[in-house]
Amino acid sequence: MSEQKEQPDLTRRDFIRSGVRGALLAGVGAATGGLLARSRSGDTVWQIDPEKCIACGNCATYCVLKPSAVKCVHAFGLCEYCEKCFGYFDLDAPDVETGAENQLCPTGAIKRRLVREPQYEYKIDEQLCIGCGKCVAGCGQFGMGALFLQVRHDLCINCNECAIAAACPADAFRRVPADKPYLLKKKQ
């Protein structure tokens, strides 16, 4: 009973199967084709818009890396090389003594160097910086806003969804083209 009955049944099933396969193929093709037409050849990477950043500190702790791939960077062209730098000295620091107790940075990541009295150059030691943004807040509130946070792409592993972006209260993270991976502050 089986042989004759099975044969056409099997072919019918195969036929349906091929039909559905064709349909699925067309579906996947249509969806990806449509997206491919719109896609860019280059990749995108995560970056912080310094105009939106509020230096809340989440960058230091929400990154999947530790220390975070977000570091403080310095727009030297914006900096006034102040002797009393609000990104370098604690708000309550009596004056401009460079003792550790007067420094704002909890990890001592800002290095200060005399250029010419009373101008000082400030540089970030990224090995020490954890991206907490404390100096960014200080410089932003009382200084020129020359210190700001950026995702450092030598460190960032470019997660599909950036964990910091999801936790950012200021919506400051966005994807930028990989060939222009930084949103630097410039002289206005």
Binding site: C56, G57, N58, C59, A60, P106, K134, Q141, A166, A167
Partner: peptide
């Protein structure tokens, strides 16, 4: 899990700029 940043940064006092 706190993926939305509800719990804040969790940084200690010394990391927070307070004016």
């Amino acid at each position: 899990f706190d993926p939305t940043g509800k719990g804040g940064s969790g940084l200690g006092e010394q990391f927070v700029y307070d004016s």
